[in-house]
Write a protein that binds this DNA or RNA. Structure first.
Lengths: 338, 338
DNA sequence: GACTGGCACTCCCGGACCGGGAGTGCCAAA
DNA sequence: TTTGGCACTCCCGGTCCGGGAGTGCCAGTC
């Protein structure tokens, strides 16, 4: 594959992203200083089409990139456009004003959608990679407890639990001390094992209560492993005329399904700093026309993912830069609370 | 206004809601057993149009109801369609499985959007109508605290706070005892006054710290008075062809603005059990074509609102019944945790 | 006086038709 | 290998047209 052919591909991707219209040979040879005529470009385009990087919507229309074409562009042609200094400052300031984890996540997701003009998705720090900072028991009624768990990433989880016997204030204090002694500082992945032994450590008279409490704790740390995500910028789906017009419904539906979003943000095992999944590469049917740019974040190790989601025809260099920068800043913020 | 004219209006509203097409005089006289001919219906329609209850999209098209027409329908013509027994059971079961307040709200908003096929909005129990059940202080670093506030509605708010001096474990315990002694059981509306005196009650060596903490508490109870809301069913905006096609963007944007949503759900002062705001009655420009059906909920007194939002052309009897039923069940659930 | 059938009229809507324009593929020449 | 020329294809927007649905009005009937 010729150098000039790559340049032609770049020109097509860039122009198509900018104008959203199929780009013809004349436009390429004129607007990009390739030094060759339109006819030559046509030959290169025929080659690129043969090789599957671009396609024609109809005979005698210009060309548009295929998913394969975007992939090549991202891998070899797109220079990442770093954010401007002003943008960096704004990001930093906006994020550092956050007062708690919820706030961090909310601000992050808004920031991402505004910077990229796409739909943004941010996963809360994953529970199973966090550890327990503190457990709080609050009695609601004599036989009803509220368990509040605070993790080292600042995430707070709560749950109601029914206990079989009436609890005095002292009982609650005793149990609180017990569970904190046993669980404080422990990673959530170890918690189920420890919780299993909990009942046997309590004084015999609290046995039944401790068993019920243990069940509640287990539910809190395990069943609630379901991930939480925040979404913003759904209105951006309506940008650019109506690219998503036909297929908008399933996408809006998917945005409310944690499971699908998690799948899009990436498997837990992906260790890459930043992944770009283009069109078909998302293995979900409704997202064949969609690109996801996702990055991991976390203090030191990755505790969650964030990303944006838009049409395959997106500004890759800009989007990639924005996602990367925001992920870094968020990691820094979390670091400060350790 | 004639009885029969009202029946004609009802027929037009019902048919238009069902078919989404302007309804003509023939259709009315045939499908609804009015016992009069199309010509007579035409006369009545001319009157209704003159009076502003219906209108013609173009000459020689059928009629569609105006906002004023829907209003009359809701006030005088629409018999509420109660949910079926099966639906009631399903609602009850689904909501009673909730394990914490977040879960209650999430389930509620989903339920509403599924029952009504519209966009649903649920406000979290308002902080300024709740009281404090418990305050928890957790030290993150020696000079950094996390304040966790639990209210009697089960809502949990958190916030990071910086303190000027290093805190020992005992200091934290002492402060925790102090703030709980002072604030437990107090309504949040009284909290600022109490907090102001807090620093003076602490031992002198903790003075500076207590002042900083008081500020943090104040931020938690006051600044965070901003309401939280949950939204679901945005995909329903794309139903029925593309009614919202042109105006979808601003609505999607509004759904991410707490302020706008709160405005739609209703002023705090509205004591009505259930309000229906049709078209213009929402004083927000982007919602001139939108109807909001909202209800207050809460154990005993109203602590928050919930509702659905859809095109003025909606199934009023069904929607009203659904919102009312769900609001009642949620109130019951909250009652159980008092 | 209220209701009805008839009738002429209006206007939307979908389909057919058409011309201009943009872009292509191919070819022969440089 | 590149280039200019040229015939060809096909989309797109505009116009035109006929059918259909619905109306308003009028004269006649109960």
């Amino acid at each position: 594959m010729d150098d000039r052919k790559l340049e032609v591909l770049r020109a097509i991707v860039e122009d198509y992203v900018a104008t959203q219209e199929p780009v013809g040979s004349k436009a390429v040879s004129q607007r990009h200083a390739l030094g060759v005529s339109a006819a030559t470009v046509r030959n290169d385009m025929a080659y690129l089409e043969e090789a599957g990087y671009i396609q024609q919507p109809h005979t005698s229309a210009g060309r548009i990139p295929t998913a394969k074409g975007y992939r090549l562009f991202v891998d070899r042609l797109g220079k990442i456009k770093p954010l401007s200094a002003a943008e960096r400052r704004a990001v930093h300031r906006f994020l550092s004003e956050a007062v708690d984890l919820d706030d961090v996540v909310t601000r992050t997701v808004r920031l991402l959608s505004q910077l990229t003009h796409q739909v943004a998705v941010v996963q809360y720090p994953s529970l199973n990679r966090s550890s327990i900072r503190h457990l709080e028991l609050v009695s609601l009624t004599p036989t009803r407890l509220m368990i509040v768990m605070i993790t080292d990433t600042g995430r707070v989880e709560q749950r109601f639990t029914e206990v079989p016997a009436e609890l005095s204030e002292d009982n609650v204090l005793e149990l609180r001390r017990l569970v904190n002694e046993q669980l404080q500082g422990k990673p959530l992945s170890d918690a189920p094992r420890i919780i299993a032994d909990l009942a046997s450590l309590a004084r015999p008279e609290l046995g039944a209560t401790a068993t019920a409490l243990a069940q509640g704790l287990l539910d809190t740390v395990v069943a609630r492993t379901e991930e939480r995500v925040a979404v913003a910028g759904a209105a951006n789906l309506t940008r650019d005329g109506n690219f998503f017009a036909g297929s908008m419904r399933p996408i809006l539906e998917a945005l409310e399904e944690e499971v699908v979003l998690m799948q899009l943000l990436g498997r837990a095992d992906s260790n890459a700093l930043l992944t770009v999944r283009i069109g078909d590469e998302n293995e979900i049917d409704d997202f064949r026309e969609t690109t996801v740019v996702a990055a991991g974040y976390g203090p030191g190790s990755v505790v969650g993912h964030m990303g944006v989601l838009g049409p395959t025809r997106m500004d890759y260099p800009g989007t990639i830069a924005a996602v990367r920068a925001v992920a870094r800043y968020v990691s820094e913020i979390l670091e400060q609370n350790r």
